[in-house]
């Protein structure tokens, strides 16, 4: 870890002022579960670390008739335990609770989950986000890509092959979440679905933030009554392991028929990956083993497996199917109870 200056601002404005105009000069410290290891491995070498701990306005969850406002510094555990989240945004609570290790859930934050860096082992071993060798050739397609992208990658050319590591983004996007960011020029609000970006050049990042912008809160519209949601994660180990593929679904229902569906995959592409074909397919359908399997099939249409990750296509397919069946099962439980 390089020597760095530690800043502990108390307002968002002050924090934004402490950030630099270029990436890499300053880094934001939220829970620190990701940044510390990046710094220890010299993957991140900021001159200044700006802690968000002291900024009160970034904490807390507020529930109102218009929906939910989640502060960027809310921990994953707080999110998971919050009654309104648990009652009305089931798939989100599940996603937060599934993040491995109580330690990470207790320290890791919502903003940090969205802005954490990819776990690509070439990136973490110092070959850059786009993971190139000295000649500029991409290492991932020729190398060990078992955990890499099956969607949204450049298919052998230089570019991004990592998968976005966020656990919450797929569920949040299915709820149409918006993200509020603050920078030197004030605040702006972005749909979370448009927040993530795929870098084309080394030095660019995985989202549309400017280097001196901070995620301040997540805004969720009021949950629509009778919406069925679920998140399904395929994970090899029970403890301390990241998912291999995830799917979050949110179904607006009309009786037992799907009025409209939102389906977003995680850990399969450099950005959270919407499954629009599957969404369209489900409109007007009841969720059955068969329709869920067909939606899973539609969700992976167009997947481009690399040399070592064909299995992830199957995992994505199953994650969608199982998330849909789980959501439908919540619906049945709900009817029984009420």
């Amino acid at each position: 870890m390089n020597v760095f200056e530690y800043a502990n601002p108390t307002t968002t404005k002050e924090a934004a002022g402490l950030l630099a105009a270029q990436w890499g000069e300053a880094e934001i410290l939220a829970g620190g579960t990701d940044l510390l290891s990046l710094m220890k491995n010299y993957v991140a070498t900021p001159k200044r670390v700006v802690s968000l701990r002291g900024i009160k306005e970034l904490s807390g969850i507020t529930s109102s008739a218009s929906g939910l406002r989640i502060g960027a510094m809310v921990t994953l555990q707080e999110l998971h335990d919050h009654k309104a989240v648990h009652d009305d945004y089931h798939s989100l609570a599940h996603a937060a609770g599934s993040v491995p290790s109580p330690q990470i859930r207790n320290l890791g934050t919502v903003g940090g989950d969205l802005c954490q860096r990819p776990r690509c082992w070439y990136f973490r071993n110092g070959f850059g986000l786009l993971a190139k060798d000295e000649k500029g050739q991409p290492l991932v397609p020729a190398g060990d890509n078992r955990y890499h992208a099956i969607f949204g990658h450049p298919g052998g050319s230089p570019g991004a092959y990592y998968v976005h590591p966020s656990s919450l983004a797929p569920a949040l996007i299915t709820f149409g979440a918006r993200v509020k960011v603050a920078g030197p020029k004030g605040e702006r609000e972005i749909p979370l679905a448009s927040f993530f970006a795929t870098p084309k050049r080394e030095g660019e990042r995985e989202n549309v933030l400017m280097p001196n912008e901070i995620v301040t809160e997540i805004i969720l519209a009021a949950a629509s009554k009778g919406m069925l949601t679920a998140t399904y994660e395929v994970r090899q180990k029970e403890a301390l392991d990241w998912p291999l593929a995830t799917a979050s679904v949110a179904l607006r229902m009309s009786g037992d028929k799907v009025k409209s569906a939102r389906i977003v995959l995680g850990h399969v592409a450099p950005v959270p990956w919407p499954a629009h074909e599957a969404e369209k397919l489900l409109a007007g359908q009841t969720i059955t083993e068969d329709s869920a399997a067909k939606a899973g099939e539609a969700a992976v249409r167009g997947a481009k497996a690399l040399s070592g990750n064909k299995y992830k296509v199957q995992l994505a397919r199953v994650a969608v199917k199982r998330a849909l069946l789980e959501a439908a099962a919540h619906g049945k439980e709900g009817m029984q109870h009420g």
């Binding site: 776990r119 082992w121 071993n125 020729a142 190398g143 029970e238 403890a239 301390l240």
Partner: peptide, 25 residues
């Protein structure tokens, strides 16, 4: 222990991707 043939480097010299069993496993 995973080695990258292009770079000659170990890809998982950490306890994140060099995976060990936990109690639940």
């Amino acid at each position: 222990k995973l080695m990258d043939e292009t770079t000659g480097r170990c890809l998982n010299p950490d306890m994140e991707f060099y995976k060990l069993a936990g109690i639940g496993d």
